[in-house]
Design a protein around this nucleic acid. Sequence first.
DNA 1: GTAGGGTTAG
Length: 632
Amino acid sequence: MFKLKLQRLFTVNPSIEGPKFCSVASSLQFLDDGGQTNHQIHEHNTSILSTQIQQTPSMDPRFYVSALMNCKHLQQIKSIHAQLSVNGLLSDLLLINKLLYMYVRYNSLDDAYSLFDKMPERNPASWSVMIGGFAKAGNYTNCFETFREYIKSGEHLDVYTLPSVIRVCRDRKDLKMGRLVHHIAHKFGLHKNTFVCVALVDMYAKCGIIDDARKLFDIMPERDLTTWTVMIGACAASGNANESLVLFDQMRESGLVPDKVSMVTIVNACAKLGAMHKAKLIHDLIQTQYRSPDVILGTAMIDMYAKCGSIDSARQVFDEMPQRNVITWSTMISAYGYHGQGQKALELFLIMCKNRIAPNKITFLSLLYACSHSGLVKDGLQIFSQMQDEYFIKPDVKHYTCMVDLLGRAGRINEAFTMIKNMKVEKDEGLWSAFLAACRVYNQVEMAQKAAESLLEINPHNPSHCIMLSNIYAKAAKWDDVAKIRVQMNGKNVKKTPGLTWVEAHNTFYKFSSGDRTHCESNAIYEKLEGLIGKLKVNGYVPDTDFVLHDVSEEVKLGNLYAHSEKLAIAYGLMSVPEGNPIRVTKNLRVCGDCHTFIKVVSLVEGREIIVRDAKRFHHVREGVCSCGDYW
DNA sequence: GTAGGGTTAG
């Protein structure tokens, strides 16, 4: 139909060629795309179009502008470019800028630059399009270089260029350049522009300078939805998701209504925090505003509920979503993984394949992770082969790490080591750490030493490697070696990250550190804990001092264990969370083995469900049994 | 011609 119409038009107007032809063709295509079926309207529009072309002089640059805008292929742009050359129109700045813009839009930066380079004169738009093009393409060197030329050229700097350049600084985490651009913005009086400020806030935040980001945010003359959203996301990214929630409320109080993007940002903050009470409130808010979430928002909500400990709510959101993509499915598979439901992850993968959703690298990573955390060694090995043989996805170091973890947890240390030796991709810290952790569980001191040496070679400054090796020596009672590492660590000024646990009660979080006495009900908490441990011992709980990692006497070891942050948090949870409700606990590190046993016995003796989110996964503990199957 | 969104090993 479309072809026919074009042919007819061409017969009526044989003079139509090049850009005019493109323009007419695109317009007709547009009419077709609009589902316009009325034949008469078609005829009418077609005739208006041809009359216009006949009446307008062919040298009018406006024609070429509209023809350019209608281009659908790079080849069309090039053909118009050639026509402009022939007609001597390459001195029209507006037209060249449009051409430049189209080259950038169709990712042909070489064409764009060769045009830009030859331009006899340029205006700020020319610079901005070229620099923005380099920025979007991730061509940092050319972006900065062209920006430098722009500044040097003495041409007026308008507001459009800066955000692109700042975004590049953000992506490269180039704080030095970022500060320089900030300085330039001041110099040209553009530092109060909202677009510039938002880009700067985002840049500082992503470079880890959250204080500078916040200062800038606080003094901004006007804050729109995007500004707030950037700041809310920045807080969550810098580890202060609680502040994100505070800002979100302030934003709403200021009269702004969150859109989908800001909802996604706050949903993420909630996921980071693991705050179930907030998750429900935000879900309600989303439901009042939208009939159903879009793919991105829905996916974020699945992740939020999963990370807040409710795999059932996550699945419900998943089931109710009108549209899902590979990321949605992968998110749900990951969720089953860190909730220790490997079998469900595998089942979901089968359904996903039946639905003809093509899995990607991350889907497989989530599957392998799920297998490793549920002890499904055979399935994991099979998935690993399937990924390569059926889907032709090459494993990267993360997939190998999962495999090493899978084999290592199952005690198949030699197989894991063979895999590491034979793999063709570069080995990193994570890979060796996974292997080292397995060596530690199975007391393979010599293998552990190999791993630790590789680790310290890759990164001599990472304290956790030193701590891990010291833990292995401690477990093997090699106290001399422990002492040596401790001395090394002191010399390097490396310290162990302190363990912290939060418990959710009275719609808020209470934080505990090891041996904490800062809570106002501290005395009662210790009393509760003491009574609890007495009760537990009667039920067969024996403190496991293997997990105390200093060379101290048994008595002192017991004392340290006794006041671990998770024990204090759970004691307080028992006091303050109403009976019948689960106790929700979040720990910044992984739960130690003794605390894990403690939690299981508490769940049995007190008849309480305890949901623990540690640095890597969830433990659902009920009636003395943990969902991780003691396998974490 | 300029700013903000989802999954991922240890």
